[in-house]
Design a protein around this nucleic acid. Sequence first.
DNA 1: AAACGTAACAACCGCCTCCTT
DNA 2: GAAGGAGGCGGTTGTTACGTT
Length: 310
Amino acid sequence: MGRAPCCDKATVKKGPWSPEEDATLKNYIEEHGTGGNWIALPHKIGLKRCGKSCRLRWLNYLRPNIKHGDFTPEEDSIICSLYISIGSRWSIIAAQLPGRTDNDVKNYWNTKLKKRLLGRRKDHLRQSAAVVTEAASTGENMNDGEPAALSASAMERIQLCMQLQNPLLGAHHNPLMWPGCSSRASTQSNNSFNSNSSCVTIAEQGQSSSSLNEHLMMNAQLEGAAAIDNSLASPSSAENSNMISMEAELEELLYGENKAAGMVDGGGAQQVDVDWWSYDQAAGKSPVGCWDFTPETNTVFLDYASVYDI
DNA sequence: AAACGTAACAACCGCCTCCTT
DNA sequence: GAAGGAGGCGGTTGTTACGTT
C-alpha cells in the first residue's frame, strides 16, 4: 500500500510564491506561530499551498534574521571543514552558521564552493579520474566483482582530501578521514553535552579552533557515528604540523596562494581561525570520528583508497 | 539583437525518522 | 510492537538572470 500524500496535489498551488502569499504566511506565523501543524496551517489561512511548501518557505525565506548571499571566508571555511568531515549534512552545517539555511548552504556549495575547490587542480583530478576509470575497466578493487560505487558526496570529499597534497594526511594517516577508524573522545564516558548545546554555533563562538572541533565531536556523537577504535594512537606532533600545512593548502584552494601563505605564517593576513581536523592533544582529546561509518562506506572507501594507493 | 550557455537560487519530490495512537 | 501521520532532510529540478558569442 502506497503512502498517502501529505496534500491534494491537484488543488495545491506550486511554483514561486507571490508577495501576497508570503505576507499571509508571515503575518500568520508571526502572530500565531505555526501551531505545531504545518499540514493544517495553509488551510487555516486560506493558502492553496502544501504544508511542506509553507514550512520550506518560512524556514528558507520568510523567517527573521535570514541571511542571503555574501558568504564570508569564515563561513566558507566552516562549510568546507564540515562538509569534508561529515558530508552533505546541510542542516548540521547550516546550524553552525547563524542566519543561513540548509538550502542556502547547499546551493552555495553546489554552485560555488565545490567548483572552487574541486575545479582548481584539473590535471590532478583528470589523473585521478583516469585511475578510477582504468581500475573500473580492469575490474580491480571491486567488491564481489561489483564496481565500487561511491556517492558523489563521498567522491567529492575524497577528492578534496586528495587535493590537500599531503598524501599521508590525505586519508591514510589521517584517522579523521577514515571510516570506522576514529577514536571516541576520551571524555565520552563522562561527557555532558546534550542536544541543546548545538544551539551555540561556531560562528557565534568566534570560529575558535577548539569550538569547531568540539562541534565536530558533538555532531559525530549526535549521529552516533563514531566507531570505537581506541587502538589508534594520536597523531604525532609531526603529523600535527602537517595538518597545519593542510589547512594552508585548503586555504590556497579557496582563496589563492598569497592569502594562504599569509595565513600559514600568521603574517598579517586575516587568520581564519579554524583548525582543520586538529585536536587538542594536551587535553587528551582524540580526533573526532566524522565519516559515515556504515560498513558499506567503510568497505567502499577502503576499495577506493587502494585504487589510489593512499 | 538574437541565440546560446552558465550560474544562482527557489522550490519540489521522495525518503527517512520520530512521535503518537 | 505495529501502523500511520507529520516533520525534517538531502537530492534534484525548474526558473530566472546574466554573460558570451
